[in-house]
């Protein structure tokens, strides 16, 4: 391995090169004081350089195939048991949960896209509420981060959905238990709302900033089980002339989000808009942000109209087969499709 690839600053690199150190092996047996004298730098700085060098040497050695020496790897068998332990956040719609094998996967990035008015924001709010269902009732008792880039988060609607969720839990109990439960503090819609952390993002810089900051934020708020970004697209479709730069920033962001999802075992849900694309002689709807972006999410769900019903389609997933399921948006939130019964009107 060459010096040029080391993560050290340019001035240090040029000092190394001018002193004749071009490869890692030339540095490996060096003592810090020797290096400091050679490069005419402080001992402390020399120590830091050697540390970077030995890290890099370890890494390049381990890629040779000594599998015990690999750090941070798992065998497929270990991963299997981990996958079986995987947690899911219910969407509120049983049919949709069924094709997702339980709901939105924790530890993964899921992208949800669809035409305007199909219910993306509704699903986002629903998930932010559902994640708070206590463990005793089949939920996670977690908290939610809601990153709103479009200003479409309606807190009144979140209140409604929280109410719907509470009533859904209560329905499983007899009248007597219900009365006791209903008095508990967490059973109030307001306590659900107090567990949703809302960020209002007004530019793409802020969007990058919040993605970086989340790492620290999540350390302070260990209970957060879901991060919803509504939508990931908006600012990136507004003020970008340089598409190469956009692609680079987006892919950096998606890598960070994936890492967050893995290390904190939380679900990341990105809402995306649709755009039209010309393929094979006709126009089709497709999710925005381009082809390279479509590689960056682990799961992709597309919401669409099928005749008179809303459907969700699993467009991409490493573990689930493609399938679609109907759902509906009711006053209580996302529920099973209600094509048979008349829809309740909201007041």
């Amino acid at each position: 391995m060459e010096i040029a690839n080391l993560p050290i600053s340019a001035s240090q690199r040029s000092k190394l090169l001018s002193a004749g150190y071009a490869t890692l092996s030339s540095l490996s047996s060096l003592s810090p004081s020797h290096l400091a004298r050679d490069l005419n730098i402080e001992l402390q700085e020399a120590l830091e350089i050697l540390k970077v060098v030995s890290d890099a040497a370890d890494r390049s050695k381990s890629t040779d195939g000594h599998h015990q020496a690999l750090k941070g790897v798992q065998t497929a068998w270990d991963m299997l048991s981990e996958e079986q332990m995987q947690q899911h956040i219910t969407t509120g719609c049983e049919d949709l949960d069924h094709i997702l094998r339980g709901g939105i996967h924790c530890g993964e990035v899921t992208e949800v896209g669809g035409v305007p008015g199909i219910g993306k924001t509704q699903l986002g709010i629903q998930l932010a509420v559902n994640v708070q269902i206590p463990v005793e009732y089949g939920g996670h008792g977690g908290q939610a981060v809601y990153i709103d880039t479009e200003g479409s988060f309606m807190v009144e609607r979140a209140h409604q959905i929280a109410e719907g969720c509470i009533n859904g839990i209560l329905d499983n109990f007899t009248d007597h238990d219900r009365k006791i439960l209903a008095c508990q503090e967490w059973m109030q819609p307001n306590s659900f709302l107090s567990n949703i952390f809302y960020f209002r993002i007004c530019s793409y810089t802020e969007q990058i900033a919040v993605t970086n900051y989340l790492e620290k934020f999540l350390k302070e708020h260990k209970d957060v089980k879901i991060v919803v970004i509504d939508s990931v697209t908006f600012h990136f479709r507004q003020d970008f002339d340089d598409l190469a730069c956009r692609t680079r920033i987006l892919s950096g962001m998606s890598l960070k989000l994936m890492k967050l999802a893995k290390t904190n075992n939380l679900a990341v849900v990105l809402l995306n808009q649709v755009t039209t694309k010309y393929t094979e002689g006709s126009f089709h709807l497709t999710l925005a942000l381009g082809d390279s972006w479509s590689h960056s999410c682990t799961n992709r769900i597309i919401l669409y109209w099928n005749a008179n019903e809303r459907y969700a389609y699993i467009d991409k997933s490493p573990s689930l087969p493609s399938a679609s399921a109907p759902y509906s948006v009711t006053s209580k939130g996302i529920r099973n499709s209600t094509s048979h019964c008349k829809r309740v009107r909201m007041m």
């Binding site: 709302l193 952390f197 809302y198 960020f199 209002r200 993002i201 007004c202 802020e206 900033a209």
Partner: peptide
């Protein structure tokens, strides 16, 4: 990032 990131609010 921490400084450029707008402050959060709870939905409540």
């Amino acid at each position: 990032s921490e400084i450029a990131c707008p402050p959060y609010q709870t939905a409540l």
